[in-house]
Amino acid sequence: MIRRHPEPLLWMLFSAGGVVSAMLMPVLVLLFGLAYPLGWLTPPASDRVRALVANPLAAIVLFSLIVLSLFHWAHRFRHTLYDGLQIKHLSEVIAVVSYGAAIVGSAVAAYLLWQLS
């Protein structure tokens, strides 16, 4: 009998987050973080971007990307604190803060995407 603990689920979220953020984040950051603000490329009209985000499919993709990236961060941050700072004795506090932040971030993302739809 396998004893239940949340580690497999958290690792799956971490793993999926690593894959999607590695594939999609760099191009989004390059476009919306550098190329458009610095004028390397002409940004699309804001109403077109809003229309795109209002599409349920685009909203689901963006939401998944944000949620999985946040859980990827949370898992990494938690283990960095455990092993990097060697404060594993605070494991419960660290887990609540890390995954709690990811849950709050996910809720904010859901709210914002809902507002834009």
Partner: peptide, 8 residues
């Protein structure tokens, strides 16, 4: 890890 996660 993948095997164990899927199993769980």
């Amino acid at each position: 890890k993948l095997t164990a996660a899927l199993e769980s």
